[in-house]
Design a protein around this nucleic acid. Structure first.
Length: 683
RNA sequence: GGCGAGGUAGCUCAGUUGGUUAGAGCACCGGAUUCAUAACCCGGAGGUCAGGGGUUCAACUCCCCUCCUCGCUACCA
């Protein structure tokens, strides 16, 4: 709990998956907050290990490799480098940035699995899965392609149809084909090791809902939902040749489930770091006086709050995460960030288009971080925050203090003659800031902390406005020395407290006002800068971002939108030729909707009674998102009457209504002429 | 449909265990000022706290219902 006095901190940031570059969403959700937190802890002298690395296993990477005609190793090498560079460029100050393909990790993860295996922590189950007889491999869902049972799209994957978005199971596909050999896969038995999460229900309830009531509501709410929904054993192994070999007998050709091995990556990276620095890694993972914190996005809550703690618990000697401050998602200009649709601000592109402006992005993403709910990043907001906060308030204050000191005192910190009340008030205010900002950071309230930081810059501006040294220099110059001294003290404190948030700005400011000897608790004191010390030449900390720069970025996104919509308008290619005989098997008729009502407990299904001319029958159709029951009643429709009946939500559907589906997924009615009579054949 | 998280000024967010005229930053308007990147400083306007009902002397805050957004989950022949 918060009041506990921890001796050291292990802070992890979610391992980015090495199949694509990083974008602002990654930074806002995980890496900037974790970096701020860690830099703050270091500033107050804490012993911290900040752990990161690339997640390089799993099916998605093998698929990407296959698609691009490369090896998985080439893919992960490429993105690992790219991701690592982005982190370095943005000043994400990992103590180690490792990768799950490292030998150290393979060893650690395999050992971990083996230990649990020997303790009897797993249950082995045999199940039937698709198998490619030619390639002698079991097929992951994504490795199976076939015709979508919903929309008849030919290239549907075993887990999802990319044409209509249906979630599928591979057994539902019509004409399933292996993507490896193109052969028809067979069903074959395979054995896997399951982690019985259900046995950890009581432990999880106590751990999350009782012992950690301080967790963010979005996190504990999500966990409660999972726990209440009933936990099931989850397979921790997969039939795949890319990953960490399962280290037990009878597990040839199997690897650890990527979500088993990835969190262990935190541990193996810590080991690597400890080896390199002469530390004992176990101090950071097994001592009760260590605080373990996982920074993640909301998509990872279940793995970090439910599965990983259970796995740690099962092993027995590890501490548990003390907090998991998961953030929500960041949207971009009103739309969800999407890698595949290129709807993102890519970090490697930002670095080129906004050189030397990493702190601006860090600032904007912190000020607008999705801490409690999804937030929207807009370029307009980026510009405003830069121009009217960083430039106008922060940069301006520093510039004023430095320029005036040069103008009046030749660039030397003047001595204090005597304080007046206005000085004492300002200094008293100043004193509060380190504690106030620290308090927010301790609670992971980064935007609040950043707000306080800006308040300190405001304090400086206000102090200058009240004391007006540019006037006094003409009348009572001896007073101005004290004023500039106080201003520079504020500037120095501002610099020190900015360091976790704006590390690059700190460095620039440090060139002007040397603050390297100061730490967090020095900030707020009235005499950090000695009289007579020289300060450097004034230099702007932030530049204004002009309209045309922003417009260019917005235009770039508009182009992406245009490209996407062109792609979406592409007409699906014709399916393979069929014979008239094939066609004539279908009995298509004109029908008329007699009744229509929503299906209980479903939000996509409508139940119809249709007069097919032959009979009046029940048909269930998944069109509730597109049509209301009222507007369907009385409509003429096209019906496939000889489709085998099927139970849907407890209702037998006897046929299928035909609709046109636009590329973006909206359904349009295909209506026979009103003069066509019910039961008329369509051919 | 179930579960979870949200819906508070134009925008982004605070609002502690229910208690006087609902707060902040930015944007906007007015004033003052010129040391400063037309920046700073002071002031102002702006909200039936998603909507409806209830409990209470008193509700943004508690209870019920409805609507909207996001996430997980089920259904889509």
């Amino acid at each position: 709990m918060a009041e506990k006095n921890f001796k050291r901190y292990t802070v992890t940031a979610a391992l980015p998956y090495a199949n694509g570059p990083l974008h602002i969403g990654h930074l806002a959700g995980v890496y900037v907050p974790s970096d701020i937190y860690v830099r703050y802890l270091r500033a107050v002298g804490k012993d911290v290990a900040f752990i990161g690395g690339s997640d390089e296993h799993g099916v998605a990477i093998t698929l990407k490799a296959r698609k691009e005609g490369k090896t998985p190793q080439q893919i992960i090498d490429h993105y690992h480098e790219m991701i690592k560079n982005s982190f370095e460029s943005f000043g994400i100050s990992f103590d180690i940035y490792s990768r799950t393909s490292s030998p150290q990790h393979h060893q650690t993860a395999a050992d971990y699995f083996k230990k649990l295996y020997e303790k009897g922590a797993f249950e082995a189950h045999v199940s039937e899965q698709f198998y490619d007889n030619k390639e002698h491999q079991f097929l992951a869902d994504r490795y199976i392609k076939g015709t979508c049972p919903t929309c008849s799209f030919d290239g549907a994957y075993g887990d999802q149809c990319e044409n209509c978005g249906s979630t599928l199971s591979p057994t539902e596909l019509i004409n399933p084909k292996s993507m490896l050999s193109g052969e028809v896969p067979i069903m074959k038995e395979t054995k896997h090791w399951y982690f019985p999460l259900d046995r950890y229900e009581d432990f999880l309830k106590q751990y999350i809902l009782e012992d950690h009531k301080e967790w963010k509501t979005n996190v504990s709410g999500q966990c409660k939902s999972w726990i209440d929904g009933g936990l099931k054993p989850r397979p921790m192994t997969r039939d795949l040749d890319w990953g960490i070999k399962v280290p037990v007998k009878g597990a040839e050709g199997k690897v650890l489930y990527v979500w088993f091995d990835a969190p262990i990556g935190y541990i193996s990276a810590t080991q690597e770091w400890a080896q390199a620095t002469g530390k004992n890694w176990e101090d950071y993972w097994k001592k009760e006086d260590t605080k373990l914190v996982h920074f993640i996005g909301k998509d990872n809550i279940v793995f970090h709050c439910i599965i990983f703690p259970s796995i740690l618990k099962a092993e027995g000697s590890y501490i548990l995460p003390d907090n998991v401050p998961a953030n929500e998602f960041l949207n971009l200009e009103g739309n969800k960030i999407s890698t595949s649709r290129n709807w993102a601000v890519w970090l490697h592109e930002y670095l080129i288009e906004f050189p030397e402006q990493q702190d601006v992005l860090r600032y904007v993403l912190t000020a607008n971080a999705p801490e409690t709910k999804d937030n929207d990043f807009t370029w307009k907001d980026f510009q405003i925050r830069n121009n009217s906060e960083l430039v106008a308030i922060y940069g301006n204050f520093i510039n004023r203090a430095v320029v005036l000191t040069h103008k009046f005192f030749g660039g030397k910190v003047p001595d204090i003659t005597s304080y007046e009340q206005v000085d004492l008030d300002a200094l008293a205010n100043l004193e509060i800031f380190p504690q106030r900002i620290a308090h927010s950071l301790d609670q992971f309230k980064f935007r609040e902390a950043l707000g306080y930081l800006m308040d300190l810059a405001r304090l400086g501006n206000k102090y200058l406005a009240e004391t007006e040294p540019w006037k006094l220099i003409k009348t009572t110059p001896e007073r101005v020395g004290t004023i500039m001294n106080v201003s520079l003290q504020i500037a120095a404190s501002l610099g020190v407290l900015s360091r976790p948030f704006l590390p690059f700005t700190y460095e620039k400011l440090n060139q002007m006002i040397n603050m390297d000897h100061l730490n967090w608790t020095d900030a707020g004191k009235p005499s950090n800068l000695q009289g007579g010390t020289s300060i450097g030449e004034g230099r702007l900390l932030f530049e204004k971002v002009e309209d045309d720069v922003i417009e260019k970025q917005i235009q770039k996104l508009m182009n992406t939108k245009k490209d996407n919509s062109i792609e979406e308008q592409l007409i699906a290619p014709s399916k393979p030729m069929i014979s008239y005989e094939d066609f004539s098997k279908m009995d298509l008729r004109v029908g008329q909707v007699l009744t229509a009502e929503p299906v209980l407990k479903s939000n996509k299904l409508l139940k119809f009674t249709v007069d097919t001319g032959i009979d009046k029958r029940t048909i269930v159709s998944g069109i509730a998102k597109h049509f209301t029951p009222e507007e369907m009643i009385g409509k003429k429709v096209m019906v496939l009457v000889n489709l085998a009946p099927r139970m849907i939500m407890g209702i037998e559907s006897q046929g299928m209504l035909l609709f046109a589906e636009n590329k973006e997924g909206s359904l349009k009615a295909v209506v026979p002429d009103a003069a066509a009579s019910n039961g008329a054949g369509i051919s």
